[in-house]
Nucleic acid binder design. Structure first.
Length: 130
DNA sequence: CTTCTAACA
DNA sequence: TGTTAGAA
């Protein structure tokens, strides 16, 4: 299924369409770009052209922001995500995660999210409960 | 008409 | 983040 990924990577959507699809303002979309997240291609007229992957990316960012994570935090989660994708290529086949593994990973995620929050939002589950 | 950049009563 | 001006 390489064709599918190719289509999702084609940058063919102008910012106006992205605004409707993501329910984000042009200001926000451009600002997130300045922050180093979702850098769209530019057409001949210097206009931003987004791909379907960019749309997903923006929606993901929107979710994180809704959970009280700031852009600096998203950048870090993003870098961690990219590093995990690389390491995943090496560790071809992995053993299924044990119950203890899941709880350990979950604890790390909450610790990271809690530390990156801006303070206006609080997690409903305390780290100790994990 | 749509989008871009830069700036702020 | 919103909004606005001036240019493309």
């Amino acid at each position: 299924m390489k064709e599918k990924e190719l289509r999702r990577s084609l940058s063919v959507l102008p910012i106006g369409t992205v605004m409707k699809l993501t329910d984000l303002s042009a200001r926000q979309i451009r600002y997130y770009e300045q922050q180093g997240l979702v850098i769209p291609e530019r057409n001949e007229g210097n206009r931003r052209m987004y791909s379907l992957n960019d749309i997903d990316q923006l929606l993901e960012i929107k979710d994180y922001l809704g959970e009280g994570i700031n852009m600096a935090g998203i950048r870090q989660l993003y870098e961690q995500q990219q590093q995990k994708e690389e390491s995943a290529k090496n560790k071809r086949q992995q053993q299924p995660l044990t119950d203890a593994d899941v709880r350990r990973i979950l604890r790390e995620e909450f610790k990271a999210v809690g530390g990156l929050s801006d303070g206006t939002t609080r997690l409903s589950v305390r780290n100790q409960e994990l």
